[in-house]
Design a protein around this nucleic acid. Sequence first.
DNA 1: ATCTATTTGTACGTATGTATT
DNA 2: AAATACATACGTACAAATAGA
Lengths: 254, 254
Amino acid sequence: MLPATTRSKAEAKLSRPVQVAEAIKDWVVEQRLQAGDRLPGETELIERFSMSKGTIREAMRILEAQGLIKTRTGPGGGSFVHEVSRQRAKALLGNYFYFKDLTIGDIYQLRLTLEPELAASLAGKLSEEILRALEENIAEYSEPATDIDEERTQHVASLRFHTILAEQAENPLLGFVIDFMVNLLSDLTVYRRLYSPPNVELWQQGHDHQQALVKALRDGDPDAARAIMSDHMETAWKLMRRQEVKMQNRFISE
Amino acid sequence: MLPATTRSKAEAKLSRPVQVAEAIKDWVVEQRLQAGDRLPGETELIERFSMSKGTIREAMRILEAQGLIKTRTGPGGGSFVHEVSRQRAKALLGNYFYFKDLTIGDIYQLRLTLEPELAASLAGKLSEEILRALEENIAEYSEPATDIDEERTQHVASLRFHTILAEQAENPLLGFVIDFMVNLLSDLTVYRRLYSPPNVELWQQGHDHQQALVKALRDGDPDAARAIMSDHMETAWKLMRRQEVKMQNRFISE
DNA sequence: ATCTATTTGTACGTATGTATT
DNA sequence: AAATACATACGTACAAATAGA
């Protein structure tokens, strides 16, 4: 597991702060520093790199923006290696898609195949605590919403169900991608056409799916879990389409 | 399409540079600035925010690190809104997974379902130019490798095939995720057990798959494309497993 | 509760670098 | 080639935060 940095490229002139930031990154990897380990203080870095204070500070801000370090003032303070948080990663990736005009369909094309896969892989592997959390979450929307505001709240809550599952994924990649997509969906503003009334039947189906899914997960039945999630995704997708939902570009905050 | 920033939170004390960076981000969104548009110069930002030059500069480095702006010197220079590049997004996301110990199996769990989906969605939609590029790429590894070095080169080249497809995806999310995974695979170092000789048969299968896939794509046959890609992924996965490949944590460079 | 030492955070003046016209 | 309009870099001084005595 010898980590290293891929340095190569046409390597167009990089500004000093960026160079320093890269050098520090490399140094951290070389030293096998782990999350929580302390980096040299400002003054030491100034000497080590023969750079001015401002330049060093700009470099640190770069690393901080990438979520790789955290900095504290005071005695015993300084900069510390920090594991990039999932929230930070989602925010940074969100910046990329800000410019990309994703459609709801784009998201569902992935959810439709990935969420059933996740559900199957979690069957029989969740603690009773998590299963309870899922059930409590479902309880939050056990009754159909009466107004459009409540409906939106329920919609977000029902998405939370999927976030909980994503957080339990053994496959970090699968978990992250699903979490990210659910995040995008939670963030979007819903416009419903006036002539498209809330579809209680579809809503009820979704609710029942989630309950059945928890049972399959508890029973350790991966095939059932996959099948139910598959149906659930189809239902959710139908609901979204009916409601004429529009994506809205925004930056994800941390 | 009214973009906006979700500002809320416990909002723990943020450093000034971070606050300024966020404020500038919001301002850019409010002003509906597009990629390429110019931001106010340093001196103007200093006045606008009543901050020192250093603070403003640190803020700009943050935005730059996130890939949201580019800065040029000289007359007519300054900072400009910049669409986050795919390469930058991959690098930033890579930092997140640096701490996560992904396995090859994790990646293939996603490739196995996503790549066939991509292949199907591209059937009949690729220009002759792209189809040619794919064929030329395949030609780079039409003969079995003779030594382990050449084999690695061919391995990377055959992954390049998938990158080309990912870049053509109509679904930006699907394209990005696949591109990112292929990037991870290209970056990893391959250790082969001595008693595991190169499997020419499997390699040949992979090669044939790719040729058949190009034909299906040209013919506009989505079902065939999906089926072939599905087989191809199984083959690739078998090859990787046989070769006892190990992931190595590293930072992706830009 | 206060002081003190440590370490980052902010300010500002000046000089240098760089690309356009 | 020179002037111009920008960012880039440096150094110092001082302010703020925090932990510990």
